[in-house]
Amino acid sequence: MSIASTGPTAPDTVPAADIRGWLVERIAFYLECSTEEIAEDAPLVDIGLDSVYSLTLCGDVEDRFGLTVEPTMAWDHPTVGAITAHLTEELARR
């Protein structure tokens, strides 16, 4: 098992590309597919990330960015692109 995170980090700003890259890697891990298969604008439910399961993504975000987000984050921001934008905003606000 590979987990990208090495513990919570809280830099002042995290480049969107880093967030996106980490997210794609994480979702590819859950779906047991390659990162190339995760399109930025594909609804996560369509590529197999079950709605109930996506509730657990909040834990990964907390571990990686030290940021507490709603478990329903992936419901309201249903693509990699949308979550990236949301997290970028949340991290900047902090």
């Binding site: 098992m1 891990f29 859950y30 779906l31 047991e32 079950d50 109930v52 399961y53 657990t56």
Partner: peptide
């Protein structure tokens, strides 16, 4: 902690 990814989902 050792569960492979697929075994962490409803599947």
């Amino acid at each position: 902690a050792e569960l492979p990814a697929r075994d962490r989902t409803v599947l």
